[in-house]
């Protein structure tokens, strides 16, 4: 295992070293590239003046706020559609008509309705997060062991308790998989909105660095955004394995 992870590091380290040597040898002057050592320096600089931390806070705030709202809406709809087949069939055309709208296409609508800032970003992130949660939680609720529902009926649980005590716990592992997918989407959408238009957070930071012709800072932001995406993914995968173990795998396509 350690031999394999060492091998995994060979390629990235070799590329970085070759790039560093090449940049030094040619005395690279560029608006789009910088040697790795300067990128690291720029990253430290951005940490030192707290600018990248503030940007990270803004981006993550929008990401998680949108994720929370989108997950709650998606979960409520998904569970309702999963329990009441009639409702699901009646809403099918409406859902299939709205779902394919690319989240980013809502950007101009959110812009004129809400203006720049957190709110418009959160709305777009939430819209993007609703669909995976809705679809997967609907499927999860439908695949609940029918005998559990019979138990609920035999115990004459009222509907609210039926949802809370039977359906949610039984479907939770697969719902968490949906949440994990949505979290990845949320970060992507948040950064994209910031890059496209919203003067907030990491996306705006990287655009500003590009416009200021600071390739070292721009690439430092890129590395940092990549690290956050990776960390979020690892965190959620670990949480999934800890919380649900193999139970979650049944619903995981990947």
């Amino acid at each position: 295992m350690t031999a394999n992870s060492a091998k995994a590091l060979v390629l990235p380290l070799a590329v970085l070293a070759a790039f560093e040597v090449w940049a030094r040898a040619t005395h690279l002057q560029s608006d789009s590239l910088a040697p790795p050592s300067e990128i690291v320096m720029a990253l430290f600089g951005a940490f030192a003046d707290l600018s990248i931390l503030a940007a990270t806070r803004d981006t993550l705030f929008s990401t998680f706020a949108g994720l929370a709202i989108g997950t709650i809406i998606g979960l409520a709809l998904g569970i309702a559609f999963g329990i009441f087949d009639t409702l699901n069939r009646l809403m099918e055309v409406t859902v299939e008509a709205i779902r394919p709208i690319p989240s980013i296409a809502l950007l101009p609508i959110a812009l004129i309705a809400l203006g720049f800032g957190y709110r418009m970003e959160i709305v777009i992130v939430a819209f993007a997060c609703v669909w995976p949660v809705l679809i997967l939680s609907r499927a999860a609720v439908r695949s609940i062991e029918p005998r559990l529902m019979e138990v609920a009926r035999a115990l004459r649980l009222p509907p609210a308790q039926r949802v809370w005590k039977i359906i949610v716990p039984a479907a939770l592992p697969r719902i968490f998989v949906a949440f994990r997918l949505s979290a990845g989407i949320a970060l992507i959408v948040a950064v994209t909105v910031e890059i496209a238009i919203n003067p907030l957070g990491l996306g705006a930071g990287i655009m500003l660095a590009q416009q200021a012709l600071r390739p070292d800072l721009m690439l430092a932001y890129l590395v940092w955004i990549g690290a956050i995406g990776y960390a979020l993914n690892v965190l959620l995968v670990v949480a999934q394995n800890r919380l649900f173990g193999r139970a979650a795998l049944s619903g995981d396509g990947a």
Binding site: V191, T192, I195, G203, M218, L222, G226, G229, Y230
Partner: peptide
């Protein structure tokens, strides 16, 4: 893979 690809746009 988890890198938000839009971050490549400024580059």
């Amino acid at each position: 893979r988890p890198l938000p690809v839009s971050a490549i746009i400024p580059v």
